[in-house]
Each structure stands twice: as structure tokens, then as C-alpha cells.
Amino acid sequence: MDVFMKGLSKAKEGVVAAAEKTKQGVAEAAGKTKEGVLYVGSKTKEGVVHGVATVAEKTKEQVTNVGGAVVTGVTAVAQKTVEGAGSIAAATGFVKKDQLGKNEEGAPQEGILEDMPVDPDNEAYEMPSEEGYQDYEPEA
């Protein structure tokens, strides 16, 4: 019985440690998101679009440190934060509304985080759909 109880105690310690790591990862992701939003706020009209992409990228980098179902929630929060940063930029006159959601080359930025393969159960990952990809044929 002692062996059984000791095993359960060790398992509990492992769960607590994993929860603490997840909590730490979420806190880091939130900190990076805040950094990115402050970065966007300090940019001029020309830099705002690039700044919004930076927020998304920093958040995406930190999301990889967070495991399990938390990833889905962090990704949703990050996307809403990026959308909010863009709205703030438009409201303050840093950028025109028609410039939001495009990178410096004018290509749409939507789907940055949505296409990231995420499995809350950590069982399997699927690649994003290939609808947006084109076949590449090298020139002879």
C-alpha cells in the first residue's frame, strides 16, 4: 500500500510541476504579447503594419512553449490582441483601416495563427491545408 501511495504522490508532483510550467509559459506569452502591443503603439504610420505582424510573430513563438489545451486559448487571445492593436492603430490615425491585415508588401496577414497546427491532446499534428499553395516548377 505504501508503494501505491508513494507512486500516487510522485504522479501528483509531476502534474503540479507540469501545471506550473504551463502557467509560466502562458505568463511569458502574455508578456511578449504586451511587449508587441507597446511596440505597435510606438510606431509611426509606416511601421504600424509591420508592428502588428511582430506582435503576432512574438506571440506565436511563445505559444510553442505552452502545451496542451492552453495553446488553443493563448492563440485565440493573441489573435484578438493583434486585431485590437490594429483597431487602436486605425482609431489613433497611425494607419488607414484599409491597410490593416496586410503586410508591407500588401499581402493579407489573416491566418497567421489560424494555420498553425495545434492539437490540445498532444496526440497528432496535421499540416495546414494546401489550398493556398501553388506547385513550383523550376525553369529549365
Rank of each mutant, 00 (worst) to 15 (best):
M1R: 00
V3N: 03
V3A: 03
F4N: 00
G7C: 15
L8R: 00
A11Y: 13
K12V: 14
K12D: 00
V15R: 00
A19L: 15
A19W: 14
G25K: 15
E28T: 07
E28Y: 08
A30T: 05
K32N: 02
K34Y: 14
E35Q: 04
E35I: 15
V37R: 00
L38N: 04
V40G: 01
V40P: 00
V40A: 03
T44I: 15
T44Y: 15
T44M: 15
K45M: 15
E46P: 02
V48P: 00
V49G: 04
H50W: 12
V52N: 01
A53Y: 15
T54L: 14
A56G: 04
K60T: 06
K60V: 10
E61N: 06
Q62N: 08
Q62I: 08
V63Q: 01
V63D: 01
V63H: 01
N65W: 14
N65T: 08
V66D: 01
V74T: 02
T75W: 15
A76H: 11
V77N: 01
Q79C: 09
Q79V: 07
K80H: 07
T81E: 02
E83H: 07
G84A: 15
A85W: 14
A85Y: 09
S87F: 13
S87C: 11
I88R: 03
A89C: 10
V95W: 14
K97E: 06
D98L: 12
D98A: 04
D98T: 14
D98N: 08
D98C: 14
L100P: 11
E104N: 06
E104D: 08
E105P: 04
E105D: 10
G106C: 09
A107T: 08
P108A: 04
P108K: 09
L113I: 12
E114R: 12
E114C: 15
V118I: 04
D119L: 10
P120I: 07
N122L: 05
N122R: 14
Y125G: 08
Y125E: 06
E126I: 10
P128C: 05
S129Y: 12
S129L: 06
E130C: 07
E130F: 09
Y133E: 10
D135R: 06
Y136N: 03
Y136M: 09
P138Y: 07
P138I: 04
E139H: 06
A140Q: 05
